[in-house]
Design a protein around this nucleic acid. Structure first.
Lengths: 228, 228
DNA sequence: TATAATTATTACAAATTTCTTAAGAAATCC
DNA sequence: GGATTTCTTAAGAAATTTGTAATAATTATA
């Protein structure tokens, strides 16, 4: 049973899609804007996203970019525009397919089926390599959300994992506290202390001596980096 | 990691562009008029400019003309007008591309990517591929904020790094103490001693014998330069 | 060479940033 | 609904960086 997230601000279209998909025995989650979709995506185990491009608040492209920062879930774009450039560009940011409105319900279903088949076929045997990052003695698995320190599993909270993931995805790059906050929390306003405290907790879990960190280093006056 | 300067007086548009670019891991600087953009351009190591044509104070074309006096940095124009005359004019003064508002975010990203790709491919060695400057035995990495002296990492404070970066970006060019102060601190008022002390501290870190500097030389009565 | 102007050196005070801790709020789980 | 886990905030401590000022050394010029 697959979970499909439909992100679409026009209620009637969303309802119609829901009917088609439920008839095919898919489980449907609905969001009417980008922000809501991110919340659902972070909470549920979504196998495919149908994303409208034109939306209030945060448009579909921005939303997919956010999702792509730490997931390779398949995405099919829905759009009123049919220009070829858009089509190609949409695929460039990691969309798996593209359907122009008004669409044929059968076409929609066909693409959804094919997309899921394609994705599950290569996620069966070999996992996408992006999901495991290993630097020094630290191994981070984005699929299972597991962290290994010298082979020993360590429990991390969701926020700790996100911060560590961000830094380990770009080893040696320095992130300012503000940057970390924006990327992890998806909000502009922030309290620097919050990030600092989480950094401290991550250090407690992955460093032998948190006061002299080997991996999670501070660059004074600039920010933090994962050294590898 | 590329630095992109967005020159746009409408705050919402500038903010939107910033989001798109940051999501693609570009570093974004913003200016809301031509004069401000020149200041940032002179201070930072900008790899591409997105320039609005219609702006108060100094318009985009005037600004690019000023920039073109001593730089071939790629420029993409943004404009509400779509007349061909503007287009041709824009390209004639050395713009690399042209986007009319309202624009598709993906189109913007595609042009930015292509522009940077094109530029770096035919600039052999002039423009650094990444943010690494290497002169003599000194290597400076702006992404990791690391400084290597003959391969040995050396810790620098934020101000020291900024000063060194400024001088190494323009090797052999002499900067007056006042100029250094203005570009690094971004303030008009200054105390010459402050800069002198910082120069001394940098020398202690990168020179074998600070009293007879090999790199960070003084030009008597004029200022300092990084010799390479 | 003497003098004035500029740069170098040093030590210490001030300012800034990060660290640590802990308590209460919020969210999640059973 | 209660218990547990996770998150946020705040405040003082600790560490680091930055600015200042006094003095020494160097360079240019008359």
């Amino acid at each position: 049973m697959y979970n499909i997230l439909v992100v679409e601000d026009e209620k009637e279209i969303a309802a119609a899609i829901e009917i088609y998909l439920k008839n095919q025995n898919y489980n449907v989650y609905k969001a009417c804007n980008g922000i809501e979709s991110l919340k659902i995506f972070n909470k549920e185990d979504i196998h495919l996203i149908l994303m409208d491009i034109m939306m209030p608040e945060m448009d579909g492209i921005q939303t997919v970019m956010k999702i792509r920062e730490n997931s390779t879930v398949p995405v099919i774009f829905l759009s009123a525009k049919s220009e070829d450039t858009d089509k190609i560009l949409g695929l460039n940011i990691g969309a798996d397919d593209y359907i122009t409105k008004p669409f044929n319900p059968l076409e929609l279903l066909a693409r959804v089926n094919s997309c899921l088949r394609r994705y599950t076929s290569y996620s069966n045997g070999v996992l996408p390599q992006d999901d495991v990052i290993r630097i020094g003695g630290i191994e981070l698995n984005n699929m299972t959300k597991e962290v290994l320190v010298d082979g020993v599993p360590v429990k991390t909270t969701p926020l700790e994992f996100k911060i560590l993931h961000l830094l380990m995805k770009n080893p040696n790059r320095v992130f300012s506290i503000e940057e970390i906050y924006e990327k992890v929390w998806n909000e502009p306003a922030y309290n620097p202390d919050t990030v600092t405290v989480h950094i401290r907790r991550i250090r407690e879990k992955i460093e032998i001596n948190p006061k002299e960190p080997k991996y999670l280093k501070v660059v004074w006056g600039i920010g933090y980096k994962f050294e590898g």
